[in-house]
Write a protein that binds this DNA or RNA. Structure first.
Length: 265
DNA sequence: CCGGATGTTCACCT
DNA sequence: GAGGTGAACATCCG
């Protein structure tokens, strides 16, 4: 499920717990830490710390901790949700409906739980492609997609010749867009996902930045990355809702990609 | 049995 | 360093 939008919902769900103190952590699975191979023991330093604030950069949710609410930050915890990860608060999620993953919902998929003031904050991840990381380095991420402006996007694209879709999915260049948001943004902007990033004029980049910001805002209000106008057309039988043309699909940037050959050029 | 799924990373080529 | 491809991770579904 999670792209920037879903992770933002998760961040909001954590806000009521700011000010609370960590009583325990549960990590039944030994393969949910990042970088891969990081032992569980260091995560023990979270116990006794106060959740001071939450933040998000792209798809990375960051919890900031301190010894006391007013003191300096001592450690941060980064959460990633992979393809099938959700955040649950006391067993239920801000997003209960799984749009893509299977309909099953097993407590055994809880890979990480933070107990704060008696409340359980868990990452439930069937496929275990998510992770938790202490003090994640934000410098590895590009600018935030939900607020990207023309100058930032220009900088992200500079010198890139590969397909626009690949560039927009690259979290080190632009943080937050996943497969669905990229396809929807390009559909809105009328851009062929296969076009080289080097072929864009300043004006096109500017309108693409606008399309991304507007798309993220709109779908955030609608309820998720899967609520785009082109989402239903990720299907050979559902034509482009804008002009009725048959959608085209192929693998671009290693991901399943759908676009309208009539208005995306 | 096979392919594919809202993600990330790595190995291997050119 | 780019860029492309494919695999891997783990699991379920059609």
């Amino acid at each position: 499920m999670p792209e920037l939008i879903e992770v933002e919902y998760y961040r909001r769900a954590l806000e009521p717990f700011v000010g609370g103190r960590v009583q325990a952590i549960e990590m039944p699975d030994t393969n949910f830490t990042r970088p891969k191979g990081t032992p569980i023991a260091p995560f023990g330093q979270l116990i006794g710390e106060v959740l001071v604030s939450t933040s998000r950069r792209g798809k990375l949710l960051v919890l900031h901790f301190g010894d006391n609410a007013d003191d300096e930050e001592t450690v941060t915890l980064g959460m990633r949700f992979g393809m099938t990860g959700r955040l649950l608060v006391n067993g239920s999620g801000p997003i209960d409906k799984l749009e893509y993953a299977s309909g099953r919902n097993e407590p055994t998929w809880d890979r990480f739980t933070l107990v704060i003031d008696g409340h359980r904050l868990s990452i439930r991840d069937q496929r275990r492609l998510g992770s938790v990381e202490l003090n994640p380095n934000l410098h590895q991420l590009g600018p935030e997609a939900s607020t990207v402006d023309a100058t930032q996007l220009q900088r992200a694209l500079a010198g890139r010749t590969k397909a626009m879709k690949s560039v927009l999915l690259d979290q080190s260049l632009l943080a937050g867009l996943g497969n669905l948001l990229v396809d929807e943004s390009l559909w809105v902007a009328g851009i062929d996902p296969r076009r080289s990033a080097a072929s864009f004029s300043d004006g096109e980049i500017e309108s693409l930045a606008t399309a991304i910001v507007k798309t993220v805002a709109k779908l955030t209000n609608r309820g998720g990355s899967h609520t785009g106008d082109s989402f239903a057309s990720r299907n050979v039988d559902v034509p482009c809702p804008r002009d009725g043309q048959s959608m085209q699909h192929d693998t671009v940037g290693g991901r399943s990609t759908w676009w309208c050959p009539a208005h995306q050029q």
